[in-house]
Design a protein around this nucleic acid. Structure first.
Lengths: 346, 346
DNA sequence: GTGAAAGCGCTAACAC
DNA sequence: GTGTTAGCGCTTTCAC
């Protein structure tokens, strides 16, 4: 008969519960995982023992045995210091956490710094998580897409490299959103409508420019008034200055995000121009700045929080082996009209 | 001789590496954990095998065997939807992630919702993490403090219940910061100085009010001009309205955080009063709103990001068994003078 | 329905 | 220095 050393240290184990309840470890395990095939009385017995002992299952052991970690990674491959400067990221993460709170999954937040990229990859391959969420404004990194084969992952925004029906992502219809915004300006009677474009090497920047172009073309207007920014407030101001310097003034401006729109505000103010009296301005994102700007900014709302929730939901379904998950999920988009736009006066 | 079923599925294991290198599993383990007592040639041999096989250690198995998870939890026990509305939280989380990026630790983000509190506690006790960071503006929950005995934890801000020399926390000297801010107003010649206090049932709110009181008392000024807000912009506006309604107008206002200061701005604007011409305003936190408000807000800078880094550092040292870790770490605080304060004119 | 036994992939004594 | 041998705490066939 093999000796069994009595364990005195640490938290109560499944074995202790089994002994207390007078059943086998397997049965306790079944109860903990609510297996249907256990007698009600045994269930009661085991649960009593669990309560008395204050037993809490050890997830690490469970993971090792079941080969599931019940954890997902959220990877933010931006330069670390910029991540939370943009409310967009924070809101996505919040949405993810919110959805996960209703599940048994746990969230691991990985911030990818310049030097940690291989560390991140090892982490994903080291069996630490059941899946990953990639959040970025930038062109999605190819290296992640490759990992997609070995571990389920969902991207925020269409990865540029994704072939049709390949990879999973949640996105907004940026083209349509930009078209909506521009059409609003057109409906107000504006004709010389410029756009402060974002980085067009990012899907969002690219598509928003395309949306503006489409609206302008559909209305038979000149679509040459394009200045290129990089999504930062500073670039928005700089672009606006270039627009102001034009011989013929513009009636209205569509900025590819709110931060650039706010940057444009300051350039306009400096030039002595008023919003919306002299120039109407529309942004995109409806971020934290939009509502509190003065005047409050008309913009396109894209609810990054809902996007985060949708991403988490998609990933969890993927992990659970759901075959019906759509590769692309489009989030609703809507124009929020505030005080930065007004009918053409002149 | 026991049968050994050949494994074909999944990632390469330590055992596969051992076979490839012609050594035992223990030796591979030693190499992976850079144990000093392994011959250089064996190290080279093993590393070669690791590279060839693309071996990545399974952290779950490692955790189970070593009883360390190499993960820490960040718990944000705020109402979920409020968490990231306050840049303070986001910045702390960022600081934590930043520090952890240089270590082998991983970050688990737990957002505590009304219904998830027991889930969180189970998580902490289920051997999921080596330690926890509790981030909150609120009075720290007693129940966490109790857990502190079984798992290392560090609080953001002094837990109200902490006895001297009990528990670990990183904090700013709120009393001193508020005193600095108020003294600045006094130095500018203001005499009727009000304070829009935060929730005084939170350590921060309590101490900032105390700091204002001290500065006023030291200068022999009337310290009865107190209105109580709740740290939200709306409450800041409401408080300011009450101040404006006073018979004798105030010269200056010290708000217990920037969000309330910005709320005060709007109330002042609505009343036709100008900042700083009619009323000087000082905030606290130097959050995202402060620099971009108009006029830019004079405030007390407390760098939540550095606070997050300090928290992470403290926790890691605690986990590593460092006995010299101080129970309280105070972060530097400094007055940032912008355009919302000006010498008294009248 | 319940129990016995065999691992999950790794670390950690302990021998050699 | 390196190999052997036990587990870490749980899940999961497979008999009964």
């Amino acid at each position: 008969m093999p000796e069994r050393t009595v364990k005195s240290s640490g938290a109560p184990t499944l074995e202790a519960v089994a002994a207390r309840a007078g059943v086998s470890r397997a049965t306790v395990s079944r109860v903990v995982n609510n297996s249907p095939k256990v007698t009600d009385e045994v269930v009661a017995l085991v649960n009593a023992a669990i309560d008395e002992l204050g037993y809490v299952p050890n997830r690490v052991a469970r993971s090792l045995a079941s080969r599931r970690t019940q954890a997902i990674a959220v990877i933010v491959p931006e330069t670390a210091s910029k991540v939370f400067d943009d409310p967009f990221f924070a809101s996505i993460v919040q949405g993810v956490a919110l959805h996960l709170a209703d599940t048994e999954y746990t969230l691991s937040l990985l911030m990818e710094t310049e030097t940690s990229s291989s560390k991140t990859r090892r982490y994903l391959r080291g069996g630490n998580v059941d899946g990953a969420l990639i959040v970025s404004h930038h062109v999605s990194d190819l290296s992640y897409t490759q990992l997609g084969a070995s571990i389920p992952m969902v991207f925020a925004g269409r990865p540029l490299i994704a072939e049709e029906g390949e990879g999973y992502y949640v996105d907004v219809d940026n083209v349509e959103g930009a078209r909506l915004a521009t059409q609003h300006l057109i409906d107000l009677g504006h004709r010389r409508i410029a756009t402060i474009a974002g980085r067009t090497d990012m899907p969002g920047g690219h598509d928003r420019l395309a949306g503006w172009r489409r609206a302008m073309a559909d209305a038979g207007l000149d679509d040459s008034l394009v200045v290129n920014g990089d999504f930062s407030p500073a670039s928005g101001a700089e672009c606006m200055r270039r627009l102001i310097a034009l011989d013929e003034p513009v009636d209205a401006v569509f900025a590819a995000n709110d931060q650039m729109a706010v940057g444009a505000y300051s350039a306009l103010r400096t030039a002595g121009l008023r919003v919306p009296d002299d120039v109407s301005v529309v942004g995109f994102d409806n971020d934290r700045y939009a509502a509190t700007a003065s005047p409050p900014l008309t913009t396109v709302n894209q609810s990054p929080e809902e996007m985060g929730m949708a991403m988490a939901e998609t990933l969890v379904r993927l992990i659970d082996g759901d075959e019906t998950v759509p590769h692309a999920s489009m989030m609703p988009l809507e124009l929020v009209v505030r005080e930065s736009t007004a009918p053409r006066t002149s």
